[in-house]
Amino acid sequence: MDVLLFLLLTITFVLIYIGKRKPAIVTFGVTMLIYIYWFSYHADDKLNINL
């Protein structure tokens, strides 16, 4: 999942650079949804102090 997040961010940067504003915003939105899900996955790890 971390790989997917970084990959989507790379795609977002490329889309911004080539001037595709709406696709960049959509890609970023998808990234943020996955980001929130993935953080909640880790935050629900109780008190695992090795994180």
Partner: peptide
């Protein structure tokens, strides 16, 4: 890794 994602965001 998630903190890096936040900074890229």
């Amino acid at each position: 890794l998630l903190q890096r994602v936040g900074m890229f965001g």
